[in-house]
Amino acid sequence: MGTDATPTDAEAACFEAGIKFGSLYHQFAGAPISPDSAPSLARAMEESIENQPHCTAVTVDVDTEALASAVASSSADYTELTGRFLEVEIVIDYEDREVVARMEMEDGYPLMRLASVRDVRRDGA
């Protein structure tokens, strides 16, 4: 190989964001959720993912109107958690790079994407 294959700090930070989203989504998808349990499940998701390396903040917002509608049309008092009920923001701080990634519904699909990648050097350089 004639090229340097070492990832940049920005690329590594983006990779970390992807790992966090994969963990968040696949760890909690399918969990029983109701309008009453939504706030505590959102907090559990945030706190769980914030434990991971380089993760400085996680915000999970549950679309309680969509959730209540799904529960109302069900024979149970709860439904399964899916991406259609969630808006998520994850902030990664890796070396001198900050990555913000978001998951939002787009055309009926929970799309995860990079919102920003920026240099946050703290040494004044």
Rank of each mutant, 00 (worst) to 15 (best):
V91L: 09
F85T: 08
I90A: 03
G30M: 05
Y94R: 11
D61L: 09
R97A: 13
I90G: 00
S34D: 02
E87W: 01
A70N: 11
E104H: 13
K20L: 07
A29D: 08
A31S: 12
G22L: 05
S74I: 03
M105I: 15
F85P: 11
I90E: 02
S69H: 04
H54I: 01
A31H: 09
E104A: 14
A101E: 08
T82W: 11
C55A: 14
S69G: 01
R43C: 03
A68T: 05
G22E: 07
A42T: 03
P35A: 06
M45V: 03
A44L: 04
R84A: 14
A101M: 14
S37I: 02
T82S: 13
R84T: 12
T59L: 07
M103R: 12
A66E: 05
S48N: 15
A68R: 05
Y25V: 05
T59A: 10
I49W: 07
D93S: 15
V58D: 02
S74C: 07
G83Q: 09
A68N: 06
S75T: 12
V99P: 05
V88H: 03
M103T: 15
Y25G: 03
A66F: 08
E80R: 11
Y94V: 10
K20G: 03
E46F: 02
S34R: 03
F85Y: 15
F85C: 05
I49Q: 08
P53Y: 04
F21G: 01
S23D: 15
T64V: 14
I90F: 00
E89C: 12
P39D: 00
L86C: 09
E50H: 10
I90M: 04
E46S: 08
I33V: 14
S74V: 02
R84I: 12
I49S: 10
L67H: 11
E89I: 12
S23P: 03
A31L: 09
V71I: 03
D36W: 06
A57M: 11
Q52Y: 13
G108W: 13
S40D: 13
R102Q: 15
T79Q: 06
R102L: 09
A31M: 04
T79F: 06
E95P: 06
F85H: 10
